[in-house]
Structure formats: structure tokens, C-alpha cells
Simulated scan of single mutants.
Amino acid sequence: MRPSPIFFGILAVAVAGGFLAAYGDISKGRDPMLVAGVVLLVLAGWMASLTLHEFGHAFVAFRGGDHDVAHKGYLTLDVRHYADPVLSFVLPLIFLIIGGIPLPGGAVWINRGALRNRATASWVSLAGPLSNLAAGAALCLVVTLVPMATGLYFGLSYLALLQILTFLINILPVPGLDGWGALEPYLSPQARAFGARVRPWAPLALFALLFLFRPVSNLLWTIAEYIYNGLGGDSYAGGLGQALFLFWK
């Protein structure tokens, strides 16, 4: 369970981005140093949160009876051990940069037959999104310690908001997402068979819906902001952080 140097490298990039964002000139609007800092902070921070998301799945599975996850390297926070680096990290990062929507990434293979019971299987699925919710709450707390009207304040605010949105998307009862995984142990064999058939393309269909139909994505953002504000987040700062991150728009 010793963290990988790769994970510490990702955190180092996030810290470097935070440093640039903190010392960028906010009075110049989209100052290159400010924008570069926010982009690095959000990308690396979100990549670290993806790793923690998958670690959450693996850790609960390990405690629940699937000890193979340790041999697969899932408890080392090393992105190289996940199923497909391109689908797990590269593609989600591209979606995030293009549209600001956090596509679920990472993948750990769990031996569900080794888990103790159905409740354990549900908690294995929920552990990932709950780690995002916890990260969002922690970031909201950290933001209160950061000087306002700085790039670091705006970047961390947007990163916190993204964690809440990631939590919401992942708990949707869509085959291939964690919300479905939490329900699946209690579903009929016919429902599980249907989920297995549509699992490869159902998440992509969902994201096409989010990109093409603004009312759907707006609803998710509204719910995310409601939870974010309840955790002490600053919606204005989160929106400004998003504008800096999506500087090309």
C-alpha cells in the first residue's frame, strides 16, 4: 500500500501549477502564467483524484475479501496498473479540456466472487465516488485558507466543484458507472444481463447526451453547485476558475 512515485509526481505537478496560479497576475485577466498555473493545477489535481477514486474501489475490495487487488498493484496509486491508460486517463483528460465535463476514468478489475456479500459489492462501487465527494469537501476547506482574488483560490475552487460533479455523474444508475455497480448485486439476472450488454457504450451515450443537450448538463451543474455551496464552496470563484481553465473558449 506504499504510494507510487508516479502519484507523488502528479502531486508535484499540481503543486507547481498552484504556485504559478498563486503568483500569476489576476489583474491582467488571462495572464499566461496565471492560466498555465490553473490548467496544470486542475489537470494534475483531477488526475490525482482519479487515482484516489480507483484506490477507493480497490481498498474496500481488499478489505471485503478480494486480496488479488494488492498483487495487481491497485493499492499503490500507480496509474500504470489500471486497465487501459488511454481510456483511463488520456481520454478523460481530453474530455475535461474540451468541455469541462469529468468523464469517469480509471479501471480496476474486481473479483466480485471473492467479496463477502452483496453489501460489500455495493460499497466497493460506492467507494470511488465517495472519495470524490470527500476530496471536494476537503478542497472547499483548503480554499478557505487561501487568499481570495488569486489564481490559486479560483483554481482550487473549480477543482473542488469538479469533484462534486464527478461524484454526481458516477452515482448515476447507468451501466458502466458506479451507481449501477452499487445496485447490480440486488438486481434480477435479467437486469444484470441487460446491463452487461449495454455497459460498453452506455457511458459514452450519457456523455453524448451531456454534450449535445445543454439542459441535461445544466441540471447536473446546478445540483453540483448546490452541494458545493452547502460544503462552503464559492460558486463565483468556481466559475472564474472554470473560465481560466477553459481559456481557449
Score class of each variant (00 low, 15 high):
234 D>F: 05
67 H>I: 10
239 G>C: 02
149 A>F: 13
178 D>S: 01
44 A>W: 07
25 D>K: 03
239 G>F: 02
135 A>Y: 09
131 S>H: 04
36 A>H: 01
49 S>N: 14
11 L>Y: 11
143 V>E: 05
10 I>P: 02
245 F>R: 08
62 F>K: 12
32 P>Q: 06
135 A>W: 13
144 T>H: 15
197 R>P: 00
9 G>N: 06
157 S>L: 11
13 V>C: 09
53 H>W: 08
4 S>A: 13
228 Y>M: 04
141 L>C: 12
145 L>Q: 14
7 F>H: 12
4 S>R: 07
119 A>C: 00
237 A>W: 12
173 P>L: 02
76 T>A: 10
82 Y>E: 06
179 G>S: 09
143 V>W: 08
55 F>M: 10
234 D>M: 11
6 I>T: 14
3 P>I: 10
4 S>N: 11
37 G>T: 07
68 D>E: 14
225 E>A: 14
151 G>M: 04
20 L>H: 01
89 F>K: 04
161 L>Q: 14
37 G>C: 03
153 Y>T: 04
233 G>F: 05
3 P>W: 10
107 A>T: 13
102 P>K: 08
226 Y>Q: 13
22 A>K: 12
90 V>D: 09
26 I>T: 13
211 F>S: 12
4 S>G: 04
122 S>A: 13
16 A>Q: 05
30 R>M: 14
246 L>F: 08
167 F>R: 04
74 Y>A: 08
34 L>N: 05
220 L>G: 04
77 L>V: 11
65 G>V: 03
18 G>A: 07
232 G>S: 11
224 A>C: 08
145 L>S: 14
55 F>Y: 15
199 R>C: 00
145 L>A: 15
69 V>L: 04
177 L>C: 05
151 G>C: 02
224 A>V: 12
175 P>C: 02
125 S>T: 04
202 A>C: 04
213 F>Y: 15
230 G>F: 05
40 L>V: 03
201 W>D: 01
124 V>L: 02
245 F>K: 09
71 H>E: 15
82 Y>R: 02
26 I>R: 06
220 L>D: 11
6 I>V: 15
45 G>W: 10
173 P>M: 06
11 L>Q: 11
209 L>C: 12
148 M>G: 14
200 P>Q: 03
75 L>A: 01
161 L>P: 01
30 R>K: 15
44 A>Y: 11
58 A>C: 03
81 H>D: 09
120 T>C: 01
75 L>H: 01
26 I>D: 00
205 A>D: 03
158 Y>C: 03
127 A>T: 11
203 P>A: 03
98 I>K: 13
218 N>E: 15
4 S>I: 10
5 P>H: 09
217 S>I: 15
186 Y>C: 02
231 L>I: 07
231 L>Q: 12
191 A>H: 04
59 F>H: 09
143 V>G: 04
86 V>G: 00
77 L>C: 02
217 S>V: 13
